[in-house]
């Protein structure tokens, strides 16, 4: 029996789709059978982030309406053994499916997959309600900015009202240089405000954009910090204890000196 995890945030643009793509890929690389569901009907994006946009024949709405069998709508990712994508419909809207239909879909997928990851649309309306309907667990993605944290708090409240208690938090796009200056809320600040458990921290990383340009998840980049963070998060989902990337490393005098001369911010996380 698989586990259905919804990835949500309230606010748009904080990295739900990137997070879904990378956690899913990392879980598949760890030998699990994974399906990614793009629940953002009308604004599908998980397909392009995954580089699978040219392979779509049927979509989520087709599968729900019985236009095709569920299996026909699943796109197998040939690069990663065990990874599948159920794309969103692009020409329909959020009302094309109901929470009950999503529930049924998830139940069916649970029989065949270890992990079902649902990429939720932004907002708290129908699309969000659909995305959480069949979920057993929730991951809330936020960035350390007031607007995103406020929306995350609202989402955590709504999840609790839907019996999805104890969601796990991912703090995305953390910039250590700004944290050091005191110009960005750190992990402790964010956790303190939201009062939920931390699943992981993803540093701001240019590789994310480079990867999505190419349609290749950043977890495959051995040297990317964000990739490492996503690999760690996936390990935690598999029940392993992986320490957080150390964020509060004090610079040694030599490091400070080197940075001063190189002008680069090559910190380790």
């Amino acid at each position: 029996m698989g586990e259905v995890i919804v990835i949500t945030s309230g606010k748009g643009g904080v990295g739900k789709t990137t997070t879904t793509a990378n956690i899913g890929t990392a879980l598949a690389l760890a030998g699990k059978k994974v399906v990614l569901i793009d629940a953002d009907i009308g604004l599908r994006n998980l397909d392009v982030v995954m580089g699978l946009e040219n392979r779509i024949v049927y979509d989520l709405v087709d599968a729900v309406e019985g236009v095709c069998r569920l299996k026909q709508a699943l796109i197998r990712d040939k690069r990663f053994e065990g990874l599948y994508l159920l794309p969103a419909a692009q020409t329909r809207d959020k009302n094309a499916v109901s929470p009950a239909q999503m529930q049924k879909l998830c139940e069916e997928l649970k029989e065949h997959f270890d992990f079902i990851l649902i990429d939720s649309p932004a907002g708290i309306e129908q699309g969000f309600k659909n995305a959480i309907a069949g979920a057993d667990k929730a991951i809330v993605v936020t960035v350390p900015e007031v607007s995103a944290v406020r929306d995350a708090d609202r989402i955590i409240g709504l999840l609790a009202a839907n019996e999805l208690i104890e969601p796990k938090l991912i703090v995305n796009r953390l910039r250590m240089d700004m944290v050091k200056r005191g110009d960005m809320m750190n992990i402790e600040d964010t956790i303190d405000i939201l009062g939920v458990d931390l699943l992981g921290v993803v540093p701001d990383d240019e590789n994310i954009i480079v990867s999505s340009n190419r349609g290749e998840p950043v977890v495959t980049e051995e040297r990317s910090l964000a990739g490492q963070a996503y690999r760690n998060i996936s390990q935690r989902l598999l029940g392993k204890e992986v320490p957080l990337i150390n964020m509060e490393t004090e610079d040694t005098f030599m490091e400070k000196l080197r940075r001063l001369f190189s002008g680069k911010n090559n910190k380790r996380y």
Binding site: P144, E145, V146, V149, R150, V179, R181, G182, D183, M184, M185, N186, D189, D192, I193
Partner: peptide
């Protein structure tokens, strides 16, 4: 620090 302002406002 602006992060403290952010935290208090939040």
């Amino acid at each position: 620090k602006s992060k403290d302002v952010a935290k208090e406002r939040l």
